[in-house]
Amino acid sequence: MAFLEVKDLRKNFGDTNVLKGVSFEMDKGEVVSVIGSSGNGKTTLLRCLNFLETPDGGSITVDGACIFPVETTDKKKSTNSSTKFGMVFQNFNLFPQYNALTNVTLAMNLREERALKERKVKGTEKKRLLKEAKAKNEEVAKALLTRVGLGDKMANYPCELSGGQQQRVAIARALAMSPDILCFDEPTSALDPELTGEVLKVIKGLIDEDRTIIIVTHEMGFARNVSDKIIFMADGVIEEMGTPEQIFDHPRSEKTKAFLAKTDE
């Protein structure tokens, strides 16, 4: 059984069918790049995986556990399953009022608070455990920020960082929740061309660590170099799927050929 199984995923926005039955599988440690023109459902696919959109049909299974559709309507459960996925956004979406370090630790600390609340730990015991957890989280966050090359920017606020630096903080923030599958939604599209390199380098580093990654991207060269599998989406369906060689060197579908010819220009 594959690590991630997406079957017949559907999503409509009003009368528009954005996803018309998308199915694919990926194994642990694989890197899948999703390519295609804008408006063909790539981002919607990622957003469905992260529960930012609720699919209208189909199923999502991670590591044998079905996370959509869920039988229970228990809201807590659905937040838990959503953290199986991590998400890095095109526009970073860092929290402007927190410095880089707190951007990374915030969600970790809040998760700790929720866990303690669920275990009904109270009073001084709660304070002590929370303090311990916070200290530990801070160490984790510092290590992550150092890894993405921002060891000297931890105290800086997002408005003091370049786009590339902000995106690297966002990557550290997503990693902090230790997601099973990390999703990148056009991580370099909002960056100046000279800043894309530093972000792609960080992503490449994660790939070399055998992380399971899905990237929606317009960086064809990058997709070709790092991916195990390429998914070409057109008109709400997977038009063609295969190894980078199959897709880039021997595309079978006319739509794929036309798209690749356009991006070559």
Partner: peptide
């Protein structure tokens, strides 16, 4: 406040 702020919180598992 941009939708992205809510979404960032959501994907990080916040309530």
């Amino acid at each position: 406040i941009s939708k992205g702020q809510y979404e960032a919180g959501q994907v990080l598992g916040m309530t």
